[in-house]
Design a protein around this nucleic acid. Structure first.
Lengths: 192, 192
DNA sequence: CGATTCTTTGAAAACAGTCAATCTGTGTGG
DNA sequence: CCACACAGATTGACTGTTTTCAAAGAATCG
C-alpha cells in the first residue's frame, strides 16, 4: 500500500528516494468501508488524504435534505476540504467512501513540516492545487453553460472509468440534475 | 493610481515600503474603456492584472453564441486567466471592462521574479489563490444546489455593491439563469 | 439629442422535476 | 444454497418552472 504511493510520488513528483521515504513514514494507513465517512459536516478537516485504492465523494446536504456532490476522488489522487484544512475550522461538507478504500493520511502539522523541509514537495503541491482549481473553474463553466445532456457527455468523457462504479443517483447529484433527467438522457442515447 | 495600490499592499499583504516600491515599479499602468477587452479567447494571458478602479468581467461564449460569466473583478482585486497565464497557452475566455477601468499589469516573467525575490509576496499570493479557490468551490456548490431565487439572493448578499453597476443580463449570465427568470424573481421580491 | 442598450412584459412551448409504482439484480443471513 | 431484503434503475402521469420569441417602453451613453 505504501509502495503504490511511493511509485506515484516517484513518477509524478520527481522526488528523491530519501524524500519519498520521509513523506511515507509520516503517513498513517487506513482502510474504510463503503459509506464510511472520513469527514463530516461540522468537523474540522484535520488530515490530508491520499487515496491508494477505492473511491470517495465529497458532498454537501442542503436544507431540503438533498445531496450535491462537489468531487469524486479515486486511486492516486488526493482529497480534503481545503477551506477547513487550511484554517482548521468546521467544514460544510462530508467526505464518504463510495467503495471500500485504502487511504494514507497526514495531519496538517506533519504535512506542513514536510512542505517546509522538502521544497520539491511544496512545488508539487502547488501544481496539484493549480490543477484542481483549473478543473473546478472548468466545471463551473460547464455547470453554467451546458444542457443536462452536455453535462452528462462531459462527465463520460472526463471520467469514463467512474461510470460503472457509481450509482446513477450520485452522477445526477454531481451533475446538478435530477435522477429522472439522467435516465431520460441515457435512454435517448441508446437510440442513437 | 499607484498610491492606491501601495495602500492596498500595505494593509493587506504586510510588506515593507521597499518591497512595495519594487513591486510598483515593475508594473505598467493602463486605462481601458467600457467594453474594451484585455484578454480574448485564443490569446495567451500574458499579464497579471490589479484593478485600481472600475469593473471587469471574465466570460466565455458557447456554441449557440450565449455568454456565461465566470467572474467579476472590481477595485482592489486581481484578475487573470490562471490556466492560460501559468502555462502561457491560449485561453478559452475573455476579460472585458464593464466600466471604464484603471489597471496595473505585470508580465509573467516580471512577476515571477518578484515572487522569488520577495517571499512575503509569494505567501500573500498563495493566500489570494486559496481564497479564490474557496470562493469558486462555494459558487459551484450553489450552482449545483440552489434555486434561481436562492442564487440571486446569494449574489445580492455577496456583492451588494455590484448590483447597481451591472446590467441585469450580466447578472443572469453570471448566475446561469435566463434574463426573464431574473426579472421575474426581482418582481416577486418587490411584493414582499 | 439621437441611438443604442437595457428592462419589462406577454404568450406559448419545452423541459426538468416530483411522486409513485414496478422491476432488477445483488448480496446477506438463515 | 436459497430466500429475502435492499439498493438501484426505469417508467408513467402530472406539475410547475424556465426558456424562447417577440415587442414595446425606459434609461443611459457618447
Amino acid at each position: 500500500m505504501i509502495s503504490a504511493f511511493e511509485t506515484y510520488l516517484h513518477t509524478h513528483a520527481g522526488l528523491t528516494g530519501e524524500e519519498i521515504n520521509r513523506i511515507s513514514s509520516a503517513a498513517t494507513a487506513r482502510s474504510i468501508r463503503r459509506n464510511e465517512l472520513i469527514l463530516q459536516e461540522g468537523q474540522v478537516c484535520r488530515h490530508k488524504t491520499f487515496l491508494v485504492s477505492g473511491l470517495l465523494r465529497t458532498y454537501g446536504i442542503v436544507a431540503d435534505g438533498s445531496e450535491h456532490i462537489l468531487q469524486f476522488a479515486s486511486e492516486n489522487t488526493w482529497t480534503l476540504d481545503a477551506e477547513s484544512y487550511d484554517h482548521q475550522k468546521p467544514t460544510l461538507f462530508n467526505i464518504a467512501a463510495v467503495e471500500r478504500s485504502e487511504l494514507l493520511q497526514w495531519t496538517k502539522p506533519a504535512f506542513d513540516r514536510l512542505l517546509l523541509e522538502i521544497p520539491a514537495l511544496k512545488a508539487f503541491s502547488e501544481q496539484l492545487i493549480a490543477n484542481s482549481n483549473h478543473r473546478s473553474r472548468q466545471r463551473l463553466f460547464t455547470s453554467l453553460s451546458a444542457t443536462p445532456e452536455e453535462k452528462y457527455e462531459d462527465f463520460v468523457r472526463l471520467f469514463p472509468d467512474l461510470l460503472a462504479r457509481l450509482p446513477l443517483h450520485m452522477i445526477a447529484a454531481y451533475l446538478g440534475i435530477s435522477l429522472k433527467t439522467l435516465t431520460r438522457i441515457r435512454h435517448a442515447q441508446l437510440k442513437r
